[in-house]
């Protein structure tokens, strides 16, 4: 009994040690890559949006068009297209509301880019696909519900 406890303790401390090492290795690279870890690893949408765009209160706009299937048979590959006729769009974020880390992608437009983007995402379960569009300092959003038959985040 005592021995078993000791094993557990040892395992625990070893695991903690390796996490520390991993974090140490990751930190400098993340700083270089400009990848927004806080936003992408956030477990809820407000935290992700605040981390990414500095606000979590987008206004709903039907000028954002989301093209996604009503029913996705395979959650591992859900085609999503986001397009808007809003002027001066600087970025678009795609969120799957019930994924473990909801923020899937953010796209920053520059130069002569048209606010349009199309990609394929993973969805854990039936949920809303939310598109958040940034125009200057303002955020707009729209959502489309997608029914997922088989979840696409493994397990």
């Amino acid at each position: 009994m005592i021995d078993a406890t000791r094993r557990t303790l040892l395992k625990g401390s070893l695991a903690a040690g390796s996490v520390g090492v991993a974090a140490g290795l990751l930190a400098p690279r993340l700083a270089l890559a400009d990848w927004n870890a806080a936003a992408f690893q956030a477990k809820d949408i407000p935290t992700a949006l605040t981390g990414l765009m500095g606000s979590d209160a987008p206004e709903t706009s039907d000028r954002i068009k989301i093209k996604a299937p009503d029913i996705a048979e395979n959650g591992a590959v859900v085609p999503v297209t986001v397009e808007t006729d809003l002027e001066g769009v600087t970025s678009i974020a795609i969120i799957a509301s019930k994924n473990q880390t909801p923020l899937i992608a953010s796209f920053d437009f520059s130069g002569s880019a048209i606010p349009f983007v199309s990609t394929r995402i993973k969805m854990a379960e039936t949920a809303d696909v939310v598109a958040v569009v940034k125009v200057g300092d303002k955020l707009y959003q729209n959502a489309k519900s997608v029914k997922v038959t088989i979840g696409g985040c493994g397990g």
Binding site: W35, Q41, S106, S112
Partner: peptide
Amino acid sequence: EVVLTANWSGGVS
């Protein structure tokens, strides 16, 4: 000229 910069999580297929 950079036209688009995409930042992704593992949620992209």
